[in-house]
Simulated scan of single mutants.
Amino acid sequence: MPHTFLSHFIRLPLILRTFIIVFISIFGFGMIMHQLEPAAFPTIFDGIWWAVITASTVGYGDLVPETIPGRFAGIILILTGAGFLSSFFVSLAATTVTKQNDILEGKSVFKGSGHMIIIGWNERSKGIIHTLCRQNTLISIALVDESLEKNPLSSKNVHFIKGRSNQDEVLIKAGIMKASKVIITADQDKGELQADMHSIITLLAVKGLNTFVPCIVEILTHDQIENAKRAGADEIIETNIVTSFIMLQSISTQDMVTSFLDLLYQMSERKLMYQDAPLEDIDKDYTTIGIEHLKNGVVLLGIKRGEATILNPPQPFSIEKNDQLILIRSS
Results as ranks from 00 to 15, higher is better:
Asp262Leu: 12
Met267Asp: 13
Ser86Gly: 14
Leu203Arg: 03
Ala55Tyr: 08
His198Leu: 11
Ile183Phe: 14
His130Phe: 08
His159Ala: 02
Leu204Val: 11
Lys150Cys: 06
Gly83Ala: 04
Arg11Ile: 05
Ile246Met: 14
Gln135Pro: 00
Phe72Tyr: 12
Gln35Val: 04
Ile236Trp: 01
Lys178Asn: 12
Asp285Ala: 07
Phe260Leu: 15
Glu218Lys: 00
Gly61Gln: 02
Ile139Ala: 03
Glu269Pro: 01
Val52Leu: 14
Ser331Arg: 12
Gly232His: 03
Thr80Ser: 13
Ile328Cys: 06
Ile291Tyr: 06
Ser154Ala: 13
Ser147Val: 09
His159Glu: 08
Ile44Arg: 12
Trp49Lys: 09
Phe29Ala: 07
Ile237Lys: 03
Ala82Ser: 15
Ser318His: 14
Ala308Pro: 00
Lys150Val: 08
Glu226Pro: 02
Glu292Met: 07
Tyr60Lys: 12
Ile291His: 10
Ala233Lys: 02
Leu132Asn: 02
Thr287Gln: 13
Arg11His: 12
Leu143Cys: 09
Pro38Ser: 08
Leu327Ile: 07
Ile20Gly: 04
Pro278Lys: 11
Arg305His: 08
Ser155Pro: 00
Val158Thr: 03
Arg11Asp: 13
Asp189Thr: 15
Ala233Phe: 01
Gly28Pro: 04
Glu226Thr: 14
Leu203Met: 10
Cys215Ile: 08
Ile44Lys: 10
Glu123Val: 11
Gly106Thr: 09
Glu320Cys: 06
Phe160Lys: 03
Leu104Gln: 14
Gly112Arg: 06
Ile10Lys: 13
Ala94Glu: 14
Asp189Ala: 15
Ile129Trp: 01
Gln167Gly: 08
Gly127Tyr: 03
Phe88Ala: 05
Gln35Lys: 04
Lys207Ile: 07
Glu320Thr: 03
Ala51Glu: 00
Lys229Gly: 03
Pro278His: 14
Thr309Ile: 15
Gly232Trp: 03
Gly191Ala: 11
Ser244Lys: 12
Ala231Trp: 04
Ile26Thr: 11
Tyr265Pro: 02
Ile15Arg: 10
Glu320Tyr: 01
Met31Arg: 08
Pro65Val: 09
Ile21Asp: 00
Tyr286Asn: 02
Ser108Gly: 07
Ile219Gly: 01
Ile44Glu: 06
Gly59Ala: 09
Glu192Val: 09
Gln249Tyr: 09
Met247Cys: 05
Ser125Pro: 10
Leu209Arg: 12
Glu238Phe: 07
Phe212Trp: 08
Asn322Phe: 09
Ser331Leu: 13
Ala205Tyr: 09
Ser155Tyr: 07
Pro42Tyr: 06
Ala205Leu: 04
Leu77Ile: 09
Phe89Ala: 11
Asp276Ser: 14
Pro65Asp: 05
Phe88Val: 03
Tyr265Lys: 15
Phe45Met: 15
Lys156Arg: 09
Met33Asp: 07
Asp262Ala: 13
Met116Leu: 10
Gly61Lys: 04
Gly232Phe: 03
Val298His: 03
Ile32Leu: 15
Ser268Arg: 15
Gly70Ile: 08
Met197Asn: 11
Lys304Asp: 08
Lys162Gln: 13
Gly74Ala: 15
Met31Thr: 11
Pro316Lys: 04
Ile24Ala: 15
Phe84Gln: 04
Gly120Ala: 11
Ile141Arg: 02
Leu209Pro: 07
Asp281Asn: 10
Gly191Phe: 08
Ser25Leu: 15
Ala195Asp: 07
Leu153Cys: 04
Ile141Ser: 02
